[in-house]
Design a binder for these strands. Structure first.
Lengths: 234, 234
DNA sequence: TGAATCACCTACTGTTCCGTAGGCTACCGC
DNA sequence: GCGGTAGCCTACGGAACAGTAGGTGATTCA
């Protein structure tokens, strides 16, 4: 699968697929090797699904964007549903991999959350519509992959939170840790949505803001595991 | 509009519309006053859209669920898109109203956040699929209403956060307050999603957890060096 | 050079589903 | 009883769209 990458003839070679009709990965229009067309179609499908959602995206339009006829698309991807699932799964894996890599690049739980958040936000900002794709997955085929992605991210956070608390010598109700992880996870999702709609604030600043919001709470919980409303000052 | 409520003949009168084919609001099958059919169709449409999303929900199925033929539905609601927008808008207004009412029922910012959160979670838990309806609104018609709903909730939170900080004698960068509001807002969304998929934990406990997570952070920010103290009097 | 293969095409089938044309029957006022 | 209307129906038009049948021309390899 990966070894087909360099089968292109000599070209001014930009790495990623061009989205305009005509040239594909350095090839002139028409008659392109199967593997190249496939990558191009996959990339375009991802964009298209991200823009329109599953139902509204038509295979005719995909074919048209790829500058190719429909049977070619069907020959490459099998069916609309299969294509969609593949796109969603790929995006999910990509996200999980990116964030996990960020998290594992650090030792300190504090730094881990920061690194994970930065990785997440940068992936969201990046071109290709992976994030939109995941967000627009509704009750269509592909809802389960999305739920899996969310669960995965939250599991990572559950791990992080639990780790932080353990380091502080505190153990908490598993449900509570999970609830916190899920809400923190979606808090970052919401932050990402807001961030994209607004001016570009440096990622590191956003992450600082989030850290300042969440860490005191976690630390406070560590100090009073079964606390009700907080006393005025700590 | 509201005065048509009691036009039903003597009946064992349950207040809300029955969802089974046959009886509607106390009427026997067939030939029901327009206003009653309309309420029934609206309620069923909301459920249907919540279950399937816009595209997958078919007007044929809606008609069938209502135990009525399609032209009747079209006569009542105009078009699929109009019906959907109406459902989404209604749900949005309902949510905004419920949360706002909760918030305004308290004076202390701390208590306001709690009350708003409880109102939100209880509305989500309630039957009728209003929350699912809002969640499944993708890039279909109706995306803008959803965005508006989120914006509205976040605005409420921006207000709350700003208020809390003001009470502490601190003023913060507007962007930062907004970012915090949006992330806290979606944090609650995520909590709601998790909550519904899991065992029923008492709402008040969930809200306690959230409060313990968020308030220390907000208070810490008030003390942080980035915060500008408010000018003496204004 | 000829044959197999590869990339690709035009043109179609069948289905789903929104929306409507036109008609039918029960009830209400007179 | 008798028009008028209110609630409802069957049956269809027509568009959008997933997926396919069958063919064409370039490229490769014996």
């Amino acid at each position: 699968m990966a070894s087909l990458e360099n089968s292109a003839p000599s070209s001014p070679g930009s790495g990623s697929a061009a989205s305009a009709t005509g040239d594909v990965g350095g090839y002139r229009r028409g008659r392109v090797p199967r593997a190249v067309r496939e990558r191009q179609v996959l990339a375009l499908a991802r964009e298209l699904f991200a823009e329109r959602g599953y139902q509204q995206a038509s295979m005719d339009e995909l074919a048209s964007r790829a500058g190719v006829s429909k049977p070619v698309v069907y020959d490459l991807v099998g069916s609309k549903e299969a294509l969609y699932l593949r796109c969603v799964e790929l995006a999910g894996e990509e996200l999980a991999q990116v964030v996990t890599k960020g998290v594992l690049s650090q030792e300190d739980p504090d730094a881990r959350l920061r690194a994970g958040a930065i990785a997440f936000l940068e992936w969201v900002a990046e071109e290709g519509g992976g994030w939109d794709l995941l967000l627009t997955a509704g009750p269509e085929p592909g809802a389960e992959p999305l739920i899996q992605v969310r669960a995965q991210q939250s599991a990572l956070l559950t791990m992080l939170t639990g780790e932080t608390l353990t380091q502080m010598g505190v153990e908490l109700d598993q449900w509570r840790v999970e609830a916190i992880a899920h809400s923190v996870n979606t808090a970052f999702e919401g932050l990402a949505i807001w961030w994209r709609a607004n001016q570009q604030i440096p990622v590191t600043e956003l992450v600082d803001w989030m850290a300042e919001i969440f860490f005191p709470g976690i630390k406070a919980i560590a100090d009073s595991p079964h606390a009700r409303p907080l006393p005025p000052t700590s």
